[in-house]
């Protein structure tokens, strides 16, 4: 293993160990934070009991739907906008301002419009994720070297084939960056929305546990979310690195 990776793991383990120590030493009170070891055993108990299986499934499904929808919409919109310069210029300020808009502020609206089902949570995840995909798709397509487009004309390819066989493959690493962000934003959006108001899902269960002073359940679930998101994030990072190895000049 590389030295940097090793150091990184040591830093993370050190932080966890420090927290554990501070709590056992009584410097951080136990009713505020339970030690990481207890969080882990709480999580194990939750998973073994299987009583939150439905909530976990609901959250993961909603996150997946948000990711797929934002990728499909984002890549399509990005591809179209890249060819429609006038429209893109007009929308540009919206792109630049997009992430300044407090998306959760729309959540009440979405609930009123779509009811208390899964749709409002998916919408928040989608709204957060889609712009990252659009922006990164545009960024990648903007960088396609002119010489590759000349090569496409030499092969007498139609505009559609050029998009599918030259432009999008070239932009793939940038779109992958968009995908990584879409995954993160979908988790943030869906779980955040569940937390605000919803009747099921991991976010809801955490908020429920907090309101019932059930610290073990709450910290077990928080650990679950953190571990899940970090694992997904790190695997995507590793995958991206492998893909980029071939492309780096």
């Amino acid at each position: 293993m590389k030295r940097v990776t090793l150091l990184r793991i040591l830093v993370i383990l050190g932080a966890i160990g420090l927290l554990e120590g501070l709590i056992h030493a009584g410097i951080v009170p136990r009713f505020t934070i339970i030690p990481p070891s207890e969080m882990a055993s709480a999580l194990a108990a939750i998973l073994a009991s299987g009583k939150l299986k439905v909530d976990i499934a609901v959250t993961l499904t909603n996150v997946a739907v948000a990711i797929v929808a934002s990728m499909a919409a984002g890549v399509t919109i990005g591809t179209v906008l890249q060819r429609a310069a006038a429209l893109r210029r007009i929308l540009d300020p919206l792109f630049a301002t997009y992430y300044a808009i407090p998306m959760y502020a729309f959540y009440p609206l979405l609930i009123v419009v779509f009811g208390l089902g899964d749709v409002p949570q998916i919408c928040i995840g989608f709204l957060l994720a889609v712009m990252a995909v659009i922006i990164n798709t545009l960024n990648g397509l903007d960088r396609v070297p002119r010489v590759l487009l000349k090569a496409a004309r030499m092969h007498r390819m139609s505009a559609l084939r050029t998009a599918l066989r030259i432009r999008l493959p070239y932009a793939a690493p940038y779109i992958f960056t968009g995908f990584k962000l879409a995954v993160a934003y979908s988790f943030i959006g869906v779980i955040g929305a569940e937390f605000i108001t919803s009747s099921r899902g991991i976010g809801y269960e955490i908020s429920f546990a907090y309101n019932n002073f059930d610290n073990r359940l709450m910290y077990g679930l928080i650990l679950f979310v953190l571990a899940l998101v970090l694992t997904v994030n790190m695997s995507l990072h590793a995958w991206e690195k492998r893909l980029m190895m071939r492309r780096q000049r």
Partner: peptide, 27 residues
């Protein structure tokens, strides 16, 4: 070295749904 060790950790922290940490902040 520090930046190479820390950057992925920071990026990972960016990607967590911070709302789940809110109860901790409240406590």
């Amino acid at each position: 070295l520090a930046s190479e060790v820390a950057e992925p950790i920071l990026v990972a922290l960016y990607s967590i749904p911070k709302v789940t940490l809110y109860p901790v902040i409240l406590l």
